[in-house]
Write a protein that binds this DNA or RNA. Structure first.
Lengths: 222, 222
DNA sequence: CTAGTAACCTATCAGTGATAGGATGGCGTA
DNA sequence: TACGCCATCCTATCACTGATAGGTTACTAG
């Protein structure tokens, strides 16, 4: 558990012989970009984000390390792009749930389980959006565009507002309600992602237990 | 918001003239160790953990960068020591609450508010214990000794067990209950620490709202 | 007064993210 | 078919990182 990176179990520095570099040479920009994101996603999941160097990514793709910078300005930009790609799928999931023709309580539970499932499935993207160390004492104001997860949260908040309006959620400030609900879901996901080696016991049962508590806590008692 | 470090707003590389190195020369081991931890704690809070280099720490202390390694094997060990020192204060806080002669509901609320207050106060230590990227696919089993926060969680879990035994918390698996409660508190702390620039609105009110929901959700309805 | 040793130093290492500037291959156009 | 453009990709290198090797210095026990 190094703070910066793992000893990184040496990856081969040169491309393996069965993946000749000529074969992947000269991809079109967009294709290469997707290529990079796919390999980075896999490496981030295996070695962690800080534990994955740009050279490891480039080597996996089959290009030189500086070539990455033709597609992404920084490693952080690469990570953000990866996160954005993943979160767009969460947004569409939330969108499908919001427009689904099912009772409000079912919509509520589906959204909660969908969020948790997404976070655990897309661990790397989720970490990038919500768990990495951000700027500490930054002067500039918060810019939602640079944090892809925030758009998904906006959709989430809108659905919370609607459910509350329909009388299915407890009363009070919608912002507080959405943020508190977010915190409750995030806590579970963040701990499971950050401390997978903790003796959780039956994780599935733990998740069910937590979801049940959330359902009871935020839904209208009436 | 770099993934690794900030541009780090250059700290002076040499000790300032008004803090002559001779004055702090040759401290006894334990004192120097505390000295290092104090400076590291301040720097971690200001620049983030990844954003604080060992040279910045050494320079702040007034010793050479390799001298740090006489007291800590790695930068990670330094961070863990810092975290352990902070968490021992959380443990004693939990201990005081557990032995306080106040009604169970008050003990419960004091513990929740104490945990949240600690996490937000000791942001750097809290991040080190519960939010940093751990090993991803580590084979070796979980070792509680190396994670100082885990001892505090054990105290926390014990109090949850007692409160449940006394009938003040909802029934069910004590492990699930403690872990779910932990997740609910952690989610709030982790989001506030990781995304301080999010438009939270009135943070104090948000915390109160969340605590109220937790109190209602986990306490016995009877 | 003299070891012995803990504390500290300079010099250096491999690895990191990022930049500068040159080589190359495929495609639209003449 | 031939030309020239330029996106793509490369090698070489930068400053900086965490960490190690090995020598120097000052306090202290005998």
């Amino acid at each position: 558990m190094t703070i910066y990176r793992k000893k990184s179990a040496q990856l081969p520095t040169s491309a393996p012989a069965d993946a000749p570099r000529a074969a992947v040479h000269r991809l079109k920009g967009a294709d290469r970009r997707e290529d990079i994101l796919n390999h980075a996603s896999r490496l981030f999941l295996t070695y962690g984000i800080a534990g994955t160097s740009t050279r490891m990514i480039a080597n996996a793709v089959g290009i030189s390390q500086p070539s990455l910078y033709a597609h992404f300005a920084t490693k952080e930009a690469l990570a953000n792009a990866l996160s954005a790609r993943a979160f767009s799928s969460l947004e569409s999931l939330i969108g499908r749930i919001r427009s689904a023709d099912i009772p409000a309580p079912a919509r509520f539970e589906a959204m909660i389980r969908g969020y948790i499932g997404f976070a655990l499935d897309q661990g790397a993207a989720y970490r990038i959006a919500f768990m990495l160390e951000g700027p500490m004492h930054e002067v500039e104001a918060f810019n939602p565009d640079i944090l892809p997860g925030m758009q998904a949260f906006a959709s989430f908040r809108d659905e919370v507002a609607l459910l509350q309006l329909e009388g299915h959620l407890r009363e009070g400030s919608t912002d507080h309600l959405a943020q508190s609900l977010w915190a409750s879901m995030h806590g579970l996901c963040a701990l499971l992602l950050a401390r997978p080696d903790f003796p959780w016991g039956d994780v599935e049962a733990m998740i069910d237990f937590h979801v049940e508590i959330i359902l009871a806590a935020y839904q209208n008692k009436a």
